[in-house]
Amino acid sequence: MNTIQIRFFATLREALGATELGLPTAAATVADLRDELIARGGAYAEALARGRAVRAALNQAMVTESAALKDGDEVAFFPPVTGG
């Protein structure tokens, strides 16, 4: 099992009432991790539902969900960005 530090921003932070979560997980990729969170049901299932525009970063760089995870990684989920 790896321990992944998960962070949420903007709409996801509000919907989940959480900014950060340390999770022991067998998830091999960011996609697996998202599916594992969806499987928790409730607000997680709704906020991270497949079909919703959710972007991800791995160790503070934008990634696609096929990115592989290792112990100690930081993964962030957030909606499309709107700065500038």
Binding site: V81, T82, G83, G84
Partner: peptide, 23 residues
């Protein structure tokens, strides 16, 4: 580049409520 790849999010606050800005 910044508009689409930098992790910023805008939320509008007005008299009748708040909403996140869509990309």
């Amino acid at each position: 580049y910044l508009k689409t790849q930098a992790p910023f999010w805008k939320k509008e606050h007005g008299a009748t409520g708040s909403r996140w800005v869509d990309a």
